[in-house]
Design a protein around this nucleic acid. Structure first.
Lengths: 141, 141
DNA sequence: GCCATTTTCTTGACTCGTTCAAGAAAGATG
DNA sequence: CATCTTTCTTGAACGAGTCAAGAAAATGGC
């Protein structure tokens, strides 16, 4: 299992215990970018039928804190996760169908943008969401 | 009551019926930018003790659809509303205390930014949230 | 001004995504 | 292999928001 091997290595790399749920969740997040928590629970259960939803919630939080996955939460949607981390890329979100697509950051590293006036804030990230309609939805009435 | 007069005019301007709850909610959103729905319910009840929470939810949706208020939903927070609309400004959010501050958009009109690669999307808005710590929280341990 | 029509508000139940809490199971450490 | 933590299972609970039915109120024509 090359994928789970990857996951295992990643977990050890950030000094996290290697457990079946963690390996499975991390592999599924890699395989299905932008999946919701609920979708991930279903996916993980195909391989590990007995995992509790709570375990998946816990694992996702731990992985997020460790920086192995990134949590995104477009308005109106449940939380979604992706494994592409560390490059501060952004997202295109379709207002109609909810589809999410990655967009490379035009500028570079985080924070890729600096506010005109920072009001004393120590800014560490600029999160950008481009809202619109995907090609398919834009073609509808 | 000059404030409610303003609100009344704004409602008529977008062809919405003028009702006490609508006027009150709109006035409070103007008076308290970035307030949560719950906070707005409390504020409105100081003047109109009998409004139901449902009425406030309905009113906020209607006002948002009409473009009189803007809804923002930073990850991990409940929905918040502001009356500053039409200028596509952005927000600074403190990770520690949740404080939100407006930032003028450096570029101009919506969408102020265009993705490097739009993947066929018809983009109409670029939402930017700058995450960090406000001056007060940055000074803590 | 008043009545009819349509919209909006009240009431109360309910859903969804997520978190809390207690004990059982499973990794890690020596 | 035994111990000690950490993590998982189970099941209840929570907050934000929505749904649905009927009562109240705003608009527009008379």
């Amino acid at each position: 299992m090359p994928v789970t091997g990857e996951a295992e290595r990643a977990l050890r790399g950030v000094a996290l215990r290697v457990t079946r749920p963690r390996v499975a969740v991390l592999a599924e997040v890699h395989a299905h970018p932008h999946a919701t928590t609920d979708a991930l629970i279903q996916l993980v259960r195909q391989h590990l039928p007995t995992v509790s939803h709570q375990a998946v919630y816990d694992v996702l939080r731990v992985l997020t804190n460790a920086g192995l996955v990134r949590r995104i939460e477009p308005s109106g949607s449940a939380a979604r996760y992706e494994a592409r981390v560390g490059d501060n890329h952004h997202h295109l979100v379709c207002r109609a169908c909810g589809t999410i697509v990655d967009v490379d950051c035009a500028v570079g590293e985080a924070p890729c943008l600096v506010p005109a006036e920072d009001h004393g804030f120590a800014v560490d990230e600029a999160e950008v969401i481009y809202w619109g309609r995907c090609a398919a939805c834009a073609a509808l009435p």
